[in-house]
């Protein structure tokens, strides 16, 4: 059951991710990305990360990607033009090597088959656990991120506002 779920959503995620890269129109890419995020949210649930799964959907899919879509619409961006040099030749072989090596290392060395994931095998990912950790161990980073967000808000407002003559 878990394997089926994993496979379904993994395949969805990969297909969507490929779509992100392949689609020429940004809005298609954006929606594909939403798809990836949705699938990942499910996978998070599978891994016992309930809160993160919800946050993934709310924050990523619900806010960030909406922002993307919004901007794409606002700029009425069209399909991209084939201009400038292509990085396919140096990039693609490197990527394949990179991926191959990563997969190889992961499979061969780091995580042998014996380490497995079962649904419900870990239940420490609820809101309560996250909250506890967040407000004790990770209090400082949490506060720092709040500052970061504030800065980002100010930055975004300053950047995007109309020039005052």
């Amino acid at each position: 059951m878990d394997v089926i779920l994993f496979l379904i959503f993994a395949v969805v995620a990969v297909v969507c991710a490929i779509n992100v890269v392949v689609q020429t129109h940004p809005i298609s890419s954006a929606l594909s990305l939403v798809g990836v995020m949705g699938s990942l949210a499910v996978l998070y649930l599978l891994l016992g990360a309930e809160f993160i799964a919800a946050a993934q959907v709310i924050v990523y899919a619900g806010a960030i990607m909406v922002l993307f879509v919004f901007v794409i619409m606002l700029l009425n961006a069209g399909a991209e033009t084939k201009k400038g040099r292509s990085y396919l030749i140096p990039g693609a072989p490197l990527l394949i090597v990179f991926l191959g090596l990563m997969a190889y290392y992961v499979q061969r060395y780091l995580f042998p088959e014996s380490a497995v994931v079962r649904f419900g095998g870990f239940t420490g990912g609820g809101p309560k656990d996250i909250g506890n950790a967040l407000f004790t161990t990770y209090l400082l980073p949490f506060e720092v991120t709040s500052i970061l967000i504030l800065v980002a808000i100010i930055g975004a407002v300053v950047l995007a506002r109309k020039e005052i003559e």
Binding site: Y87, P90, F98, L101, Y105
Partner: peptide, 22 residues
Amino acid sequence: ATWVLFGSVALLVAMGLLGGLP
């Protein structure tokens, strides 16, 4: 980014060659 990628690949290869993997 291509250079970064190149660097990462080089690192990975080096790690493999040097047996630095746990």
